Simulated assay, not measured.
Amino acid sequence: MPEPESIMRRIRDHESGKRRPDDEYAELYCRVYGLSEQVLFGGDDTDELGDEIDAIELARRAAASDVGGETLERLEMAVDDLAAAYPNTRPAELLYRVKRHLTYVARLLDGRKTLAEHRRLLVAGGWLSLLGATCHIDLRQYPAATARLRTAAQLAHHAEHPEIAAWCVETEAWKVLTDGDYQTAVTLSQGAQAIAPRTGSAYIQATAQEGRAWARLGASAETRDALARVHKMVSPMPVPDRPEHHYRYDPAKSDAYTATTLAWVGDPAAVDCARQVLERLESSDDGGPRPRRAASARLDLALALLVAEELEEAGHIAMEAMANGLLVPSNYWRVAEVVTQVEARGVSAGRDLREAYQELCPAPARREISG
């Protein structure tokens, strides 16, 4: 066997895209990420990604500059494209693309550049690191997520970019919420609001996240206060040019958060709200369908239906959410919550739901929720 240091170097080369794994290693990566070898190491998607970076690099060389305005503009466009791809792309696939772009940003940071160019590179690297952390959380890869969040926060500090800094804290709040630490999620959400620009998306998102955390704590008054603040901020907002962009707040997104929050706090109004959100997410309006968000919306609807005592439909909707293959590991605890409640109430579909959940979620990753 090779020495551990040699294996670590090889893995770093694989994950940075510098070196393609040998066949036996490639198969192991495909098993871990749940993706085909074509997608990870040589299919059409990765060819297109290499072409995109090569095109940016060619433009940089043509401009006879280590960085240059055109290179930065194209890089910034690529960052926006990746953020817009988040709702419709599997986390492992998007993470691979993000890592490739981060490698390119790191190379540019080593070159000659003006102070303004340096800052723009830091900002691009900050957004990419933040998006990478979000993908890691979706995959429940928490140590990697923490490392990328720290990097994003560092880059935001050096670039003096409070919007990225606030998103880092809000993303940490989301991470601890998915892990069941609701009080810390409240504290972090409020901390994100304290540093976020009042006109930016991070401030709205952190307020919505605070409401969700209060709902999990059963604090009805605080939950409704947060929802009211979000509604006041988003009601005059126009739909952004790219509503699917993960870091540009879409007013329709507040409806999805409202549905989640009302379902968690046990409000019967969550049913109608969740139905409307699901219909919108599956329509062609406002940027087109968002399949991954629709899968999460089904979990909101299932939980809301349980509150309304519509037990059979709740089981049916939960089964649909699991069957489409779009739920990510950060959703598994929410699936467990619905399954456990369906079983506890003696719904006929309970056994089928439990089997579907066990098939969806490997045993080491399961989080059981008591009803």
Rank of each mutant, 00 (worst) to 15 (best):
P2Q: 12
P4Y: 01
H14G: 07
E27P: 03
C30W: 04
R31Y: 00
Q38W: 02
G50S: 15
A59Q: 09
A63I: 00
D66C: 04
T71W: 02
V79Y: 01
D81P: 03
A83Q: 14
P87D: 09
R90N: 05
P91V: 03
L94F: 03
T103L: 12
V105P: 03
R107Y: 00
L108V: 06
L108Q: 09
R119V: 07
R120A: 12
L122G: 06
L122S: 08
G125V: 04
W127T: 05
W127D: 04
L128F: 04
L131M: 14
T134G: 09
T134R: 12
H136Q: 13
D138S: 15
L139M: 14
Y142E: 10
P143T: 02
A144P: 07
T151F: 01
A152L: 02
Q154C: 13
Q154D: 15
L155I: 03
A156S: 11
A159Y: 02
I164T: 09
V169C: 08
E170G: 12
K175A: 14
L177Y: 08
G180S: 05
Y182W: 12
G191H: 08
S201I: 01
A202D: 04
A202T: 03
Q205W: 00
T207Y: 02
L217I: 05
A221H: 06
T223N: 12
A228S: 15
R229I: 04
S235F: 00
M237E: 12
R242I: 01
P243S: 05
E244S: 15
H246N: 12
H246E: 14
Y249Q: 09
P251Y: 00
A252W: 00
Y257D: 14
T261G: 08
T261M: 08
A269D: 15
A270W: 01
V271T: 04
D272E: 13
C273H: 07
C273D: 05
A274T: 06
Q276W: 00
E282S: 13
S283K: 06
D285Q: 11
P289A: 13
R293K: 05
A294C: 10
L299R: 05
E309P: 08
L311S: 11
A314W: 00
G315C: 07
A321Y: 05
A321D: 10
V338H: 03
V342T: 06
V342D: 08
E343V: 06
A344Q: 11
G346I: 02
S348A: 15
A349Q: 14
A349I: 13
C361T: 10
A365K: 14
A365Q: 15
R366P: 08
E368I: 02
